[in-house]
Design a protein around this nucleic acid. Structure first.
Lengths: 121, 121
DNA sequence: GCAATACTGAACCATGTGGTTCAGTATACA
DNA sequence: TGTATACTGAACCACATGGTTCAGTATTGC
């Protein structure tokens, strides 16, 4: 039913443009959760939270599975690969545009390199 | 510091959720451009393009300057720093959730490509 | 069996979005 | 000076979004 694994940046960035949904992703980064738990955490009706989860699911950022009465939500395995890739490519264009005259950009690039490669195992 | 730091992720990700606006950013990554040029490139009225540029400007991704009749648009110096940072942090959570399961994740990704996810039912 | 739990779907509402047209204003230039 | 260019703003349109309520259905557990 739901389309997975599509590099749909529109849907993904759209999903990320809402603070509640970003919060849900952060929450799911710590532990899987049911719709009820998420709704309580974000002070919202079940129906409202279900919609948010639906948006995240459509964007391929979250997967859900219903067992008995409970629908459990977890992070999608795809992660934010496509989105990170687009942003990184754009950041390179940015850097090129400001090449040689923007120290800040250079600093940021270095910082990112360090942070990014550190966690890799 | 040119920080100009409004970490308004809502606005930024919202701006990125439209293909036309991502295209404008890519375009501006190659060269500055006027509203007219952008409107022609993306086959849109001046007014329509002005709105898009307004959204990008509001999100801090683009700056504009009017000289004479012409408003020139260029990439904002802030870049996609905040957005990249959020995504990177989230990717770390993702990785942590799937920690030690790297091989499994790879497998799932492959399966997903093949099956199109029919785990329901 | 029955009540509570957990979700689902339809319908509604206010507001926002992506686009248009039309009617301007300000500037450039012959 | 007059006209073409480049943008601007208001108004409008259809549709999407973020939420709600209400009325269900399916499961769980006593």
């Amino acid at each position: 039913m739901v389309q997975y694994c599509r590099p749909n940046l529109d849907a993904a960035f759209g999903a990320l443009s809402d603070a509640t949904r970003r919060g849900v992703l952060e929450q799911l980064g710590r532990a899987d959760a049911s719709i009820t738990v998420l709704a309580e955490r974000f002070q919202m009706t079940l129906t409202g939270m279900k919609k948010h989860v639906g948006v995240l699911e459509q964007a391929g950022l979250v997967t859900t599975e219903k067992v008995g009465r409970v629908r459990t939500c977890r992070l999608g395995v795809r992660g934010l690969q496509e989105e990170a890739a687009w942003i990184e490519r754009q950041r390179q264009l940015w850097a090129a545009r400001f090449d040689g005259l923007d120290v800040v950009v250079e600093e940021l690039k270095q910082k990112e390199k360090v942070n990014g490669r550190n966690k890799r195992k």
